[in-house]
Nucleic acid binder design. Structure first.
Lengths: 108, 108
DNA sequence: CCCAGGTACCTCGTAGTACTGAGTACCGCT
DNA sequence: AGCGGTACTCAGTACTACGAGGTACCTGGG
């Protein structure tokens, strides 16, 4: 599937929040996870800009830990504000996707 | 539901295409239709920029017709390229939304 | 020892999209 | 004549994802 970038706007951040909420993890691994999930074109640079934004907005707690196979990793975990943001993301997603599906059904 | 604007990027154009595909219609009415559908914050200016883009990209056929209640209307109808674009939009939507839903299900 | 390759992070510039705000103009009604 | 509803246009703004490049750590092979 090619060029989903415009459709991912506004949802990618939520996806990253969801991944972080599942387990404390770091940028490089998040990129791999997104690629596995089918978002094959999502690139490291994109994920890092999202992570920096989350940090700047105070939605995550960051912990730096050494790695045995490379440079130190920055692990991200959701804080209370992050969990709240994730909840509103899913609410918005539910709202938007249901309405688009309804439109698709020839919808009234 | 407030501030869906980022999440609508990339999907609003598809919604407009879908509405046009249902019946030949014009900008002002499309805006009303979107508002009815739940996208209450979508504003005329946004719809017109989308319509101009569709026209510039050769996805629609435009017909100007007089109105009895105001200035003349520009009616839009999909051409062959527009129908193709609409089909790929729904394919992308299917792809993206299914994957996001899977992620939400704690998904593997 | 050095260098390639995988791991891990950061940053600047660009492009695309939705929104804002202002402007223009037509119409019917009072 | 003026007002409210209809209808379109356009310049400017904000936000997000992406591309391309750079830095740095580690292991293994030549």
């Amino acid at each position: 599937m090619d060029d989903l970038t415009e459709m991912l706007k506004g949802t990618l951040e939520g996806c990253v929040l969801e991944i972080i909420s599942g387990e404390e993890t770091y940028g490089y691994a998040i990129t791999r996870r997104l690629n596995e999930l089918g978002f094959t074109d999502v690139i490291e640079g994109t994920v890092y800009t999202i992570l920096l934004r989350l940090e700047r907005n105070g939605l995550v707690q960051v912990t730096k830990r050494p790695s045995e196979v490379g440079p130190p990793r920055k692990f991200y975990a959701l804080n209370e504000a992050g969990r709240a943001e994730l909840a509103t993301f899913w609410a918005k997603w539910q709202y938007v996707s249901s309405r688009i599906d309804r439109l698709r059904e020839g919808g009234r």
